[in-house]
Structures are given as structure tokens and as C-alpha cells.
Design a protein around this nucleic acid. Structure first.
Length: 555
RNA sequence: GCCCCGGUAGCUCAGUUGGAUAGAGCAACUGCCUUCUAAGCAGUGGGUCCCGGGUUCGAAUCCUGGCCGGGGCACCA
């Protein structure tokens, strides 16, 4: 990657200057910073390193900059190198290098920007994992969008990624869910004396599901002993909810590699394994009738209940067994869990759990995103699954579309709390950035259609010298860096900004440069520009793909 | 009370881990369609980077003390 090569180049220049006596001897800084200048006319890359060296060398920064430029043997992709006050060195990419990128970008196609940052490491991204007690609501949308794009970005960065959904089918909530399902089913068959539990799920979707099951299966569950009926019917209802989640996520183009059942942690022995491991490590304590994980032994603020006094394992027990399964049984190098900020309190105990299992805590990353406030105009929409007052994910997808929803939810950093105004999202749908970006892609398709099958002869990319052409090329060449940034920070919102800027450069180019010329003497230029827009389309499609958005040919 | 995340243009938010004159989109205003899609382009206005103090060549960014908003501190998940 370009910044890395510049660092190496600069390091060599410093050493060379020292060897020749231009600079005094001093210890090389750990890192040579290479950044992007704020203003376009300063070039594409810059280093402020001379300011840092000024003290070590006891010289003026600008003087050091001039020495380094003289001793620099810049990489071939660099066109010009300049110094600037108070001590910057600015680099500009060479025009002929830029135009030479068109062919490799086209050749790379869908894999343009592919990095080897992950070196094939296996990483699991677990996301959404909402309780399977009803349809997915808007609260899960940000989780879904973040998780899927983080996964895609890591793939692009050279990791082998597995997408996983954790089905919480073993908790105490399940019992209530089963009883609710049973009551609604029985009610649908006229048993009005069956009541939904007070803490049960009041939503209309449960009524609907009860009716559907009653219609399809008749009264067969009423004929079973109650406990058996609860289990059988409950399982059926659970499967329906999970299938519904799968369908909703598929509407956003999200497909999982694995739907992991919490229940299997208990039937396949992982729970027993971690209990004996923790016991061996002397991390367990029994008091007040419950079994506790002694997080305080590892610096935690308080101990945590693993097995309740009624003998049932708690949520944390499943978490430990689940992560043992991920790291030890399935041997992932890294695991990323995407959680809402309401789970932030669990972060310390997860690290303590890793330590207790003898695993390096840095292999587990917990992405916490701030919750989304849903609004309709000025009104805040409260979300509660149990009162049934929910806005479902599906409703919003149908209202604003998958692409718009993904773009909006992705475009803010996970740390920022955000408002999602349903009215505004609808109202702005023609003026929103989603269409601006997609239009750039469609616009290129349109140009290519217009060019048709005419043979313009060989392309001479050296004819691409217009500032708008070069600006576009500079942006296209940046994608690998953006992927690097998004992958290393696990921050896919950088993709949205890049995509917008790329689209903007394409639109500017379109204004300034006519692609398909009818003049015979322009054919070499036309061929070159067609190559340019084809390559640009590859980049647009690639970044849209990483964001999980469609790249339409017609709008 | 303690812990986590925010506070940047009228609004919604970026700011590449400490660099140059703090950016973008919406909203407002002014222009541009007879040629590859005007879902586009060009331009204008808009700032106490929440408030003190500190660290250094240099702070929106780091440390510290406040203020405001959100979330969390269960044998719930």
C-alpha cells in the first residue's frame, strides 16, 4: 500500500542523510507518519515528520524537509515531491501511474482493493442475535447493517469470515414465549379461558401465529398433555420466528453461514466442560445457593452468577460456553460480537471469562453501537416487544427500502447515537445520498449503452490529462486504503463517505469530459474514457457491494 | 454515587488515532437542460469544535475538573 512504501522511502532518506552528514545522528522515530493533506493542492500524501525530527536534529523543520527531499529516492508512483512550511513534505501521485491503474482495476473486477491484512485468519462475526420471541424490530437494524458490512470489509481485507446468528433458545424467556404461543393457539380454537401470561408477549403477531398454527395443525396440540403440548408447539413457534428473521434479513441481502442454537451448548457438553474448567481454575464459588464466577479474582468489580439457586444456568453461563465453543472447539482466530450499547456492562466480564478459560482476551472484540432513536416527525417511537408496541424491521424496509436504510444506518460511527426519522427518510428519498451514489453507477451504464458495440480502436490512456479525469483516478486508487482503514478500525462508515466522494468525482468528470465523441479523430480518447468509466464502475460496484447496496444499471 | 458513549455550521454527522486556512450532506439563496440520464453541475452565506485548566513546536483530537444528552450498574436477557 502506498503510505507504507512512503514510510520506507522516508526512513531510507533519513538514514542516507545521516550517513552523508546532512543530519546528525539520532534514533529513528518508531513510526514515520504519512497522512492525507487537508487541501487538494497540497498533494495526495504528506508527512509532518520533520517537525518531530527538529528537536532530535536541533535544526529547523523546513531545513530538514529540504534535506530529506534531496536524499529521497521516491517510489515510482510518486510524481512530485515538495516541501511546505512549517516543515511538511508533500507527495503527488504521478499522472502516468494513475492512468496505468485502469487496466489492473478492470482486471481485478470484484476483487479490486483486496488486501492481505488478515493473512487468511479465520474470524467470526456474530451479529443481530435478537431474542427469538417475535419479529425483528428496528432496534436490530443497525446491528444487522454494521455486522454485515464489517464482515464484508474483513473479507476484503483478507480474512476468512464466518457470519453467525446466535439463537437464544435456552433462556427463561423461552418459557413465557411457549406459554404465550400456546395460549394464542388455544384461543384461536375457541379456548378463551387460556390466557397469555402477565409477563408474556402481547403483540398481535402472536395472535396471528396462533391462528395460523391452529389452521394448519388443527387441535392436535390440545389433545396432548399440557407440558408436552407446550414443548411441541413452542418449538414450532420458535422455528417460525427464526425463519421470519432469516427472511427479513434476506430482504436486506444478509445471509448467515451459521444459525447457532444456544440449546446445543447444553446438549453437546460445552456447558459441562466450561464448568469443570472453571472449577479447576478455582474460579467458581457457591453461596446463597447459587454458583458464582469469581470475576473479582481477575480484577472485576463484582462476581457473577453462573448457575442460579434454582439450579438453572443463567445467561452468562451460556455466554461462557458459547465462547468456549467459538474459540476452542471451532478454533476461530478472532471473534467479533456486535452488541447494542445496552449490553455495555457485560464487556468486562467477557474479558474476565476469556482469561479464566486461558484465552487471550484480545482475540475477542465487542463492537458496541449506540442505540437508535426512532422518530416519526417530532414524535419519538418507543419500542417494546412485550407490550407489542413495535416497529418491525420489515415495515421499515418496505417503507424506505433496503438500500436507503443500510446507507443511513451505516453512515454514522457506531459510537454516535442517532435518530432515524421515518417521515424524513421517506420524504427525502429523492434527495438522499443513496440515489446520488447509485446514480453514478447507472450513469456509467448509460454511457456504455450509448457507446454500444462500436469499435473505437485502441485506447491511449495517456490522453487522460484533464483535471477531472485525474481527480477521478486518484479517488479510484484510494479504495484499498479505505478498506484498510475500515477493516482495521472495524468502522464501515468510512465506506459511505468514500462512496459519496467517488460518485461526486464521477459526476464532475461527466460534466467536464464528453466520453463518447462522434468525431473520428477523437476515437483514441473516446476509447480511453470508456476504459476509465468502466474501471470507475468496477470501483463503485465494489464499494456498494461492501455496504450491501445494489448497483443499478438504470434509474 | 460509580462505569461506558456522545457534545463540531440552523439540522444530521465526518474528521484516517497530535499536524497546514476545521469538512460533507440536508435546509436557505443564485445560476445551468437542443448533445452520453438535471436522481446532475457550478456558486453564495453559515463556526466560542459544550465550558474551565493542563501537557508541547502544534490540541476538535491526549490528561484533569465541571455542564448537558443517551446507556448501564439483578440469581432478566
Amino acid at each position: 500500500m502506498i503510505p507504507l512504501e512512503l514510510k520506507e522511502s522516508l526512513t531510507r532518506a533519513i538514514k542516507r542523510a545521516q550517513r552523508h552528514g546532512d543530519l546528525p545522528a539520532f534514533e529513528m522515530p518508531e513510526d514515520i507518519p504519512v497522512e492525507r493533506p487537508k487541501q487538494e493542492d497540497m498533494g495526495e500524501y504528506a508527512t509532518p515528520v520533520c517537525m518531530q525530527l527538529a528537536r532530535l536534529a536541533r535544526m529547523a523543520p523546513i531545513q530538514i524537509a529540504e534535506i530529506l527531499v534531496r536524499r529521497l529516492d521516491p517510489p515510482t508512483f510518486i510524481g512530485t515531491v515538495e516541501t511546505a512550511h512549517p516543515g511538511f513534505i508533500n507527495f503527488r501521485l504521478a499522472d502516468d501511474w494513475l492512468t496505468a491503474q485502469i487496466a489492473p482495476i478492470q482486471a481485478a473486477g470484484e476483487s479490486y482493493g483486496q488486501l492481505d491484512l488478515g493473512a487468511g485468519q479465520r474470524v467470526q462475526v456474530e451479529f443481530v442475535s435478537a431474542n427469538p420471541t417475535g419479529p425483528l424490530h428496528m432496534g436490530s437494524a443497525r446491528n444487522a447493517v454494521l455486522g454485515d458490512s464489517i464482515a464484508a470489509t474483513l473479507e476484503a481485507a483478507g480474512y476468512e469470515v464466518q457470519r453467525e446468528y446466535y439463537v437464544n433458545n435456552a433462556g427463561s424467556r423461552m418459557r413465557l414465549f411457549y406459554e404465550t404461543a400456546y395460549a394464542r393457539y388455544a384461543q384461536a380454537l375457541g379456548r378463551t379461558e387460556e390466557m397469555v401470561p402477565i409477563d408474556g408477549y402481547q403483540g398481535p403477531y402472536m395472535i396471528e401465529m396462533g391462528e395460523q398454527i391452529a389452521e394448519e395443525r388443527g387441535d392436535e396440540f390440545l389433545c396432548l398433555p399440557r407440558e408436552e403440548a407446550l414443548q411441541e408447539l413452542g418449538k414450532l413457534a420458535l422455528d417460525r420466528v427464526v425463519a421470519g428473521a432469516r427472511k427479513d434479513l434476506a430482504l436486506m441481502g444478509i445471509e448467515y453461514d451459521c444459525w447457532f442454537s444456544e440449546q446445543t451448548l447444553y446438549t453437546n457438553g460445552q456447558f459441562d466442560t466450561i464448568m469443570s474448567l472453571l472449577r479447576q481454575g478455582d474460579y467458581l464459588d457457591v453461596h446463597d445457593g447459587a454458583v458464582w464466577f469469581m470475576a473479582t479474582r481477575l480484577g472485576g468489580a463484582k462476581d457473577e452468577v453462573v448457575v442460579r439457586s434454582d439450579g438453572t444456568p443463567g445467561y452468562f453461563a451460556s455466554d461462557i460456553a458459547y465462547h468456549y465453543n467459538k474459540f476452542v472447539e471451532r478454533d476461530f482466530d478472532r471473534v467479533i460480537d456486535v452488541w447494542g450499547a445496552d449490553h455495555q456492562g457485560h464487556v468486562p466480564r467477557m474479558h474476565h471469562m476469556m482469561q479464566a478459560l486461558g484465552l487471550d482476551p484480545s482475540r475477542l472484540t465487542l463492537i458496541l453501537y449506540q442505540l437508535v432513536t426512532l422518530k416519526r416527525g417530532d414524535e419519538v417511537v418507543r419500542l417494546s416487544k412485550r407490550t407489542g408496541d413495535i416497529i418491525t424491521l420489515r415495515e421499515v424496509i418496505e417503507e424506505v427500502g433496503s438500500d436507503a436504510m443500510r446507507y443511513f444506518l451505516l453512515s454514522r460511527s457506531p459510537d454516535s447515537q442517532m435518530e432515524f426519522d421515518l417521515d424524513l427518510a421517506k420524504q427525502q428519498s429523492d434527495e438522499n445520498p443513496v440515489y446520488y451514489i447509485q446514480y453514478a453507477h447507472a450513469r456509467i451504464s448509460s454511457i456504455l449503452r450509448h457507446a454500444g458495440a462500436v469499435d473505437y480502436g485502441p485506447a491511449d490512456v495517456s490522453l487522460l490529462q484533464h483535471p477531472s479525469e485525474l481527480k477521478l483516478l486518484r479517488r479510484m486508487a484510494r479504495l484499498p486504503e479505505v478498506i484498510h482503514l475500515a477493516a482495521s478500525q472495524l468502522a464501515p462508515h468510512h465506506l459511505t463517505y468514500y462512496a459519496y466522494e467517488l460518485a461526486s468525482d464521477l459526476h464532475g468528470f461527466y460534466r467536464d469530459c464528453r466520453v463518447v465523441s462522434s468525431e473520428a479523430e477523437d476515437s483514441a480518447l473516446t476509447a480511453a474514457r470508456l476504459d476509465l468509466v468502466r474501471a470507475c464502475q468496477v470501483v463503485l460496484k465494489r464499494v456498494l457491494g461492501l455496504m450491501g447496496m445494489n448497483a443499478p444499471d438504470v434509474m
